[in-house]
Write a protein that binds this DNA or RNA. Structure first.
Length: 593
RNA sequence: GGGGUGGUAGUUAAGUCGGUUAUAACGCCGGCCUGUCACGUCGGAGGCCGCGGGUUCGAGUCCCGUCCACCCCGCCA
C-alpha cells in the first residue's frame, strides 16, 4: 500500500499536537488504538508512548484512502501525513490532544498485527498469566507503562543525586563466588573447571567493601541481585538494588545522605516535601509498639503490654503465659464494639497463622466488657485495663498471650489486618522511619547456633563488643533499615573493618578458621591491608517504585518479571538444554531418570 | 515443603441436584451508518469444559492424580 510515502519522517509524537498546531502538515507514526467507522468517514486513534491522537479519513475527500484505512486493525503500525484541524465543539477534553485531529492525506502501513489476545486498554480483565505471556502487549498499556517510566525517572534521579554528592558509579562481577549464610545461590557451572560453579551475587556486599579498602570512597551502583528462594508478591528471584558504600563515616553520615536522596525522590516524583531528618526508632521500640521490624506508621492500633495487670488473673491463658516467662499484649480497636463474629474469627485466623494459639477479645459496652474473656475480669480489673489501654465503651480489645516473639508476630499482623479491613490506612500518606540498633545475632534453636541478623560483616556497637563473649544475644549492631509505610525500602550497616573482630564474628557464627579462610579468605586478607572504617546500605529499587506507583505486586514494576514459580511465561525460561551443552559442562541431571 | 483460590469460545465469566443441542458479554468476520471517541446497528463464525485416570446408563458438574497461575506460611542474613 502506498509506497510513495516511504520517505515520510515523523514530525510529532502522538501526544504532541495542540490547538496551536491547527493548519500544520504533520507526519505521525504509531499503533492503531481504536477505529470508529461512521460510513462516510472514519476515526482512527493512533497511539505511541507519548499519547493518543485522533485521525480522520473522509470518503468525500479521498475515497481510495478511506477504503485503505478500513483495512487497518487494532495494533497495526501506521505512518500518516495530514493536516491538523480543530475539532471545534467536538473536542475531547479527556485527551491531551483532544482539541485537534489530523485530517489524513497519506497513509502507510508500517506493519500489521495479529489480533491482540487482550485489548490494550487501561482497564483490562485478562488473567495475569496471559498478560505475562504477551508481556510486550501488556507493556503497551498505559498503567504498566507509567510504572516502567516512573522507574526510569527514579533511577535517573538516583544517579544524578549520588553523582552530585561525589559518589562513583562502579561495577562489580556478576559471576562470583558462592558464600555460605544467607539465601540460596543461583549457580553457574564452569566449563573450564568441570564440577565447579560460580554464583550470581545475592548482593555486591563484599565487592563494595573491597572497593572501600581499595580507597574508592563513595561507591554506588544500581545492580541486579539474585536469590533462589520462594517468591511472594513483593519478592522476585532477580531484583535491583541501589547499592551504596562510604568510608570514614558512621551511621549518621549514612542517614544524612539517604534522607536527602529519599527527599529528592519524593519531591520530584510526588511533589512531597519530607521533613528531615527522617524519624528514627530502635528495633526494640518497633517490636514493642508494632510487633514488626518494619512498622507502618500511617495508623495507630499500637500494641500495649498488660502482662503485669493480668499475671494474677483467673484466666489461665493469660496468667500461664506470664508465668512461663511470656507476655500478654493488647490492641484497642477504636469503635470495635461493632466487630462481627466473622470478623473476629478472621482476626483469630491471622493470629494463628503467625503462631498464636488464639486471639482473646472483649467488646466494650456501658455495662463493661462482653465476650468470652469478660467473666474472668471484675469491674475493677476491667477498668484498670481500659485505663492502661485508653479503651472506651465503643471499642474492642484483642489480646495475644504467648512467648514474646509469637505475641509480636501475631499481634503485629493482626494490627495490619485490622488497619486494612477497617479502612484505617489514609491514602497518599508517606510515613518514613529509620529502624536502628538491630540485634547483631539471632539464635536458631533448630540448628543450635547463632546467625547474623543482617550479615556476618556487620559491626556491633562499640559499647556492646564485650558482650560478644558473655551475652551475644544482647549485642546490638550498627545496622539500620529505612522503612516506608510498613515496607523495608533498604537496609545496611557499618561494617567490621578489623580482621580480629571479623574472625571473632565467624567464630561466633560457627564458621571455623579454616572455612572462613576458604570462603572469605580474600576479605580477611584485605582487612589485613589497611581497611578504613566503612559502611553503607542498599535500597530495593523495585520496592521503591512499587510503593511510589501504588502497585500491588513487584511484577507490575519489572518490565519482564517472573512468576511465583520463578519462570518467565514469555520466554518459557527456565528450559531444558541439550545433552551436548550439559556434557561440555560436566553435568548430568537427576530428573527423568 | 505446607495451606488456600482459580483454570469452560480469542478474552472475561455463568453453568442449579450428574440428564436432551454448554450460555452471555466483549473481541473477531461481513453488511449498514457524516461527528465518533469503550460509536451505534443488523447478521455470522467460533468449544480437547487445563491434562490423565476413575465412578456412572450418562460427567463441565462427583472422586483420585497431575500441570499451570495467583495469595499466604515456612524460606528470603
Amino acid at each position: 500500500m502506498a509506497e510513495f510515502v516511504s520517505e515520510l519522517k515523523r514530525t510529532h509524537t502522538c501526544g504532541a499536537l495542540r490547538g496551536g498546531d491547527v493548519g500544520a502538515t504533520v507526519v505521525l507514526m504509531g499503533w492503531v488504538d481504536a477505529t470508529r467507522d461512521l460510513g462516510q468517514f472514519r476515526f482512527v486513534t493512533l497511539r505511541d508512548r507519548f499519547g493518543v491522537t485522533q485521525l480522520r479519513f473522509d470518503a468525500h475527500r479521498d475515497a481510495d484512502l478511506y477504503a485503505d484505512s478500513g483495512r487497518a486493525r487494532s495494533e497495526w503500525v501506521l505512518a500518516i501525513q495530514g493536516e491538523v484541524v480543530s475539532r471545534g465543539e467536538n473536542a475531547n477534553r479527556e485527551l491531551a490532544t483532544g482539541e485537534v485531529e489530523v485530517l489524513v492525506t497519506r497513509l502507510q502501513v508500517l506493519n500489521r498485527s495479529e489480533v491482540p489476545k487482550f485489548p490494550i486498554r487501561d482497564e483490562v480483565d485478562a488473567n495475569e498469566d496471559l498478560r505475562l505471556e504477551y508481556r510486550f502487549l501488556d507493556l503497551r498499556r498505559r498503567p504498566i507503562q507509567s510504572k516502567i517510566v516512573l522507574r526510569a525517572e527514579i533511577t535517573h534521579i538516583v544517579r544524578d543525586f549520588l553523582h552530585g554528592e561525589g559518589f562513583l558509579d562502579l561495577e562489580t562481577p556478576v559471576l562470583t563466588k558462592s558464600t555460605p549464610e544467607g539465601a540460596r545461590d543461583y549457580l553457574v557451572p564452569s566449563r573450564v573447571h568441570p564440577g565447579e560453579f560460580y554464583a550470581l551475587p545475592q548482593s555486591p556486599q563484599l565487592f563494595k567493601q573491597l572497593y572501600m579498602i581499595s580507597g574508592y570512597d563513595r561507591y554506588f551502583q544500581i545492580c541486579r541481585c539474585f536469590r533462589d528462594e520462594d517468591l511472594r508478591a513483593d519478592r522476585q528471584p532477580e531484583f535491583t538494588q541501589i547499592d551504596i558504600e562510604m568510608s570514614f563515616i558512621d551511621r549518621d553520615d549514612i542517614y544524612a545522605v539517604c534522607d536527602k536522596l529519599v527527599a529528592r525522590i519524593m519531591r520530584e516524583v510526588h511533589g512531597v516535601e519530607l521533613q528531615l531528618p527522617l524519624p528514627r526508632m530502635s528495633y526494640d521500640e518497633a517490636m514493642a509498639r508494632f510487633g514488626v521490624d518494619a512498622p507502618d506508621l500511617r495508623y495507630g492500633l499500637e500494641l500495649s503490654d498488660v502482662s503485669d495487670l493480668v499475671a494474677g488473673s483467673s484466666f489461665s491463658v493469660f496468667s500461664d503465659a506470664v508465668a512461663a516467662g511470656g507476655q500478654v499484649k493488647a490492641i484497642v480497636v477504636p469503635g470495635g464494639a461493632d466487630l462481627s463474629r466473622k470478623q473476629l474469627d478472621e482476626l483469630t485466623e491471622v493470629a494463628k497463622r503467625y503462631g498464636a494459639k488464639g486471639l482473646a477479645w472483649a467488646k466494650g459496652s456501658a455495662e463493661g466488657w462482653t465476650g468470652p474473656v469478660a467473666k474472668f475480669f471484675d469491674a475493677d480489673a476491667q477498668r484498670t485495663i481500659n485505663e492502661r489501654l485508653g479503651a472506651g465503651a465503643d471499642d474492642a480489645i484483642v489480646w495475644v498471650a504467648d512467648r514474646t516473639p509469637v505475641v509480636a508476630a501475631a499481634l503485629g499482623n493482626v494490627r495490619k489486618h485490622l488497619a486494612r479491613s477497617r479502612g484505617l490506612i489514609p491514602a497518599g500518606v508517606y510515613k518514613f522511619t529509620w529502624v536502628v540498633d538491630f540485634p547483631l545475632l539471632e539464635f536458631d534453636a533448630d540448628q543450635n547456633r547463632w546467625f547474623a541478623m543482617h550479615h556476618p560483616f556487620t559491626s556491633p556497637r562499640n559499647e556492646d563488643i564485650p558482650l560478644l563473649d558473655t551475652d551475644p544475644g544482647a549485642v546490638k549492631a550498627r545496622a539500620y533499615d529505612l522503612v516506608l509505610n510498613g515496607h523495608e525500602l533498604g537496609g545496611g550497616s557499618i561494617r567490621i573493618h578489623d580482621q580480629d573482630l571479623q574472625s571473632k564474628m565467624f567464630e561466633l557464627l560457627g564458621i571455623g578458621a579454616e572455612e572462613a579462610e576458604l570462603k572469605f579468605g580474600f576479605l580477611l586478607n584485605a582487612l589485613r591491608h589497611g581497611a578504613p572504617p566503612h559502611g553503607g546500605l542498599a535500597f530495593g529499587l523495585d520496592r521503591i517504585v512499587m510503593l511510589l506507583s501504588g502497585a500491588e505486586s513487584l511484577r507490575d514494576v519489572i518490565a519482564f518479571p517472573k512468576t511465583a514459580s520463578a519462570s518467565c511465561l514469555m520466554t518459557r525460561a527456565p528450559s531444558p538444554v541439550d545433552a551436548g551443552q550439559l556434557a561440555e559442562l560436566g553435568i548430568r541431571t537427576l530428573k527423568n531418570e
